[in-house]
Nucleic acid binder design. Structure first.
Length: 317
DNA sequence: CGTCTTTGACCGGCGC
DNA sequence: GCGCCGGTCAAAGACG
């Protein structure tokens, strides 16, 4: 199935960049301060006129920016609703039960959870074809929810640590056949009875990407919930900050780019349980609130856009 | 001294 | 039945 046809992740943020500059009022003001200093009455009039024009221009730009923000928010809402539709369609396949935990767990669950193998790592911990999986009895699929998170780190960073806010105890490391990079096994140690495990391994194709596979659901609260929330807010920034989050078209895989560390980066960015509809909804809501309610985001967006406009005008002067 | 990490050994599922 | 392989255990060492 082609999920990309269902999920259009395009926010169309840059749909009309030229139109923006074309339609932006070009009432440019020539401020010759020498002339302004010569004739007082004349210069006062000229200054007033110039200021008025400048005010009008800024007001028009402000209006444009407001409209753009509205469009961005509308696009986001549309994307959100599409995502919700998509996740609700697939929610029936998220929670699968089985009697076996080992070995069978990985491939079939990846298959049912993601539909196809996650394109961001593409390693061979992979899935069965539809034909193969159809031969497998459905009862064999595991009960625990499984999700996968891809975290971009520095390639030189040899640690297999994925900071997601939870406390993990490493209990094993293994070199697997299909990947020369070792796979690390972690258990959640925040709560003694928490059944969640995670496996972390570098991607075969891109060793700067850590692929963390989470199994099970935490039976306790997120220890750094607020930090994680604020961290997620930090991820939604504009410009060249290489912190990205993407939902794979093939399933709920989240890619986080952590190569540009910021203060409090140990506050955990990745919410691991990305497979359940509840979590995806929560994720979406977090992103939504980040985008639409955070005045800082809007200010940053406005600053970025106006910066581009001003820069463009200065270049034309 | 308690906690965490490392790492070799062991276990069990799966394919042949 | 056997070997391969992924996952887990647990002893030893490191660290604060």
């Amino acid at each position: 199935m082609e999920y990309t046809s269902l999920v259009d992740s395009s926010l169309d943020l840059n749909a009309y960049p030229l139109r923006l500059f074309d339609e932006a009022p070009k009432q440019e003001v020539k401020c010759n301060f020498f002339e302004l200093g010569l004739g007082r009455k004349k210069s006062e009039k000229a200054e007033t006129g110039a200021l008025m024009e400048e005010l009008n221009r800024v007001s028009a730009e402000n209006k444009k920016l407001t409209e753009m923000l509205t469009v961005v928010c509308e696009n986001y809402e549309a994307l959100k609703s599409r995502l919700m539709n998509y996740t609700s369609k697939n929610s029936g396949t998220d929670q699968i039960s089985t009697t076996s935990r080992k070995r069978k767990a990985e491939s079939p669950t990846n298959h049912y959870n993601n539909g196809v193998i996650d394109g961001t790592n593409g390693n061979s911990e992979s899935s069965l074809s539809d034909e193969e999986s159809s031969k497998k009895p459905r009862e064999e699929h595991i009960k625990a929810t499984i999700s996968r998170v891809c975290v971009r780190t520095e390639a030189s960073d040899t640690s297999l640590l994925v900071k997601d806010g939870y406390q993990w105890r490493k209990y094993g490391q293994k070199v697997t056949r299909d990947n020369p990079c070792p796979r690390a096994y972690f258990k959640c140690s925040f709560a003694p009875s928490c059944p969640v495990k995670k496996k972390v391994q570098r991607s075969v194709e891109d060793q700067s990407i850590l692929v963390a596979t989470y199994e099970g659901e935490h039976n306790h609260l997120h220890p750094l919930k607020h930090e994680a929330s604020s961290a997620s807010n930090r991820c939604v920034t504009l410009g060249s900050v290489p912190c990205s989050a993407s939902l794979s078209s093939s399933g709920p895989t989240i890619t986080l780019d952590l190569t540009n560390p910021r203060p409090n980066d140990d506050a955990k960015v990745a919410n691991p349980r990305t497979d359940s509809p509840k979590l995806q909804q929560s994720l979406v809501e977090q992103m939504a609130s980040s985008l639409t309610k955070d005045p800082g985001f809007k200010a940053a967006l406005a600053a970025a856009i106006s910066g581009r406009i001003i820069q463009n005008k200065q270049e034309n002067w």
